[in-house]
């Protein structure tokens, strides 16, 4: 108090000048921050983690994404992850970012982080996909898969979740007895059945159709034993209340299919393009 009294009584003009200087500095700092965020002056990142594929082409994917993004913003970057836990720990701290994730992962994440799905990937004209369990023709029933090897191209956790859907109503120990062989891609999983390395394969319907067109003899060795529920393809998700800077990054992602470099990058993700999610589709994802 004595100090305050002295300051107040002795140097009023100096105090006012000090307050004004502080106010100006604060304003300047806030304005700088706002501009930085709007223009992604620091960095705006697309974080990617996909448990639906095991292809691990991250170096090529990053190079391709970064090349495409560089034409639209010098501070845009793409960051892929192969570890779910590390991905989740990083995205929780970054509001100037968007995430490319599977709808399965979105449903797990939205309980931990406030986020909003905005775009969904399209392939072959559809934004939904089913996973098909195809087995060697010697196997005619799910029960015959007890203890057998299943070739999968997704993460173990994701693949088990899908298999539980397909084996719904069957004894739980039947699913638990399945032995997963992780392969890099769907086409490997399907051929692993044809060449006798696995009893069955869990893949997308599109991959099965590709095999049909590619190698009808291998396709004929397979029988469909079951299918998962339909799920949305890869989502583009932004933190709830995301910054304006993220809007321009979103627009850059949304127009990927109309640029040749962007279209090739999308193909590396197994997609042809993006579409905006409708309110109804967003509701479906919240269920």
């Amino acid at each position: 108090m004595p100090d305050a009294t002295r300051l107040h009584a002795g140097k009023p003009a100096a105090r006012i000048r000090g307050l004004l200087r502080a106010a100006v500095l604060t304003l300047a700092f806030c304005w700088g921050q706002a501009v930085a965020q709007e223009n992604c002056a620091t960095q705006c990142t697309i974080y990617f983690y996909n448990p639906e594929t095991n292809i691990n082409n991250y170096v090529s994917l990053k190079a391709s994404f970064d090349t495409y993004l560089a034409a639209f913003g010098k501070n845009y970057r793409f960051q892929p992850f192969d570890e779910k836990d590390i991905f989740e720990s990083v995205i929780g701290n970054d509001e100037t970012s968007i995430f490319l994730i599977s709808s399965w992962h979105y449903r797990l994440l939205r309980q931990k982080l406030p986020m909003q799905p905005l775009l969904v990937g399209i392939s072959g004209g559809t934004f939904e996909q089913k996973k098909i369990l195809s087995a060697s023709r010697k196997i005619s029933d799910l029960a015959q898969l007890r203890g057998k090897s299943i070739a999968v191209a997704g993460s173990t956790a994701y693949s088990k979740n899908v298999l539980e859907q397909i084996f719904a109503g069957k004894p739980p120990e039947l699913v638990a007895s399945l032995r997963l062989i992780l392969v890099p891609k769907d086409i490997d999983a399907l051929m692993a059945v044809g060449y006798g390395m696995a009893a069955a394969a869990l893949t997308t319907e599109k991959s099965l159709n590709d095999l049909h067109a590619l190698n009808p003899k291998q396709y004929d060795l397979l029988a469909r034993l079951g299918a998962s529920r339909a799920s949305f393809r890869t989502l583009v998700v932004a933190p709830t209340g995301h910054m304006r800077a993220v809007e321009s990054l979103l627009a850059t992602v949304e127009r990927m299919q109309s640029e040749s470099a962007g279209a090739d990058t999308l193909h590396m993700l197994g997609l042809d393009g993006w579409k905006r999610l409708t309110a109804m589709e967003q509701q479906v994802l919240e269920q």
């Binding site: 691990n56 082409n57 891609k185 590396m268 197994g270």
Partner: peptide, 13 residues
């Protein structure tokens, strides 16, 4: 077949 790029592990430019 650019649709098949998703099956490629490493792209060299």
């Amino acid at each position: 077949n650019r649709q098949a790029l998703g099956a490629v592990n490493r792209v060299v430019e």
